[in-house]
């Protein structure tokens, strides 16, 4: 029997490549990392995640707002150590062919029908 595909619809899922013990949600806005901070509409590159040297992760916009507040004193909201962004070379950098994704973003095996929902 000969089967001919006339069309197919590929669906892929992605998630951030975060430290193994990281939470699923941003402690500041309480939204999943794969969703957006409360100011953004589109998840992913437009609303990236910042990993601290202390391994705590936040949406870049959330931690940015906190660090701009005087009362933050530059400290991580979770552990109160001075918040420093972990440099990319410390994490495994995924570079799938054909793209130059931000460090920290990794493709996951394609699975049927789940698109990242903007929450």
């Amino acid at each position: 029997m000969k089967v001919t595909f006339s069309a197919y619809h590929a669906v892929a899922e992605w998630k951030w490549d975060l430290p193994a013990d990281a939470d699923d949600t941003c402690g500041i806005c309480r939204v999943e990392f794969e969703g957006t901070c409360s100011k953004c509409k589109f998840p992913g590159d437009d609303c990236p995640i910042i990993i601290g040297n202390c391994t705590h992760c936040f949406h870049m916009h959330c931690i940015g707002d906190w660090l701009l507040a005087e009362s933050s004193q530059g400290k991580c909201p979770m552990c109160r150590q001075p918040f420093r962004e972990r440099l990319a070379d410390a994490a495994a950098v995924a570079t799938p062919a054909g793209g130059a994704p931000r460090p920290g973003m990794v493709a996951v095996t394609p699975t049927p029908a789940r698109t990242p929902a903007g929450r």
Binding site: E70, S71, M78
Partner: peptide
């Protein structure tokens, strides 16, 4: 207070 607050509190 401002010195002790952290946004991870709720």
């Amino acid at each position: 207070d401002a010195q002790g607050w952290s946004p991870v509190h709720n």
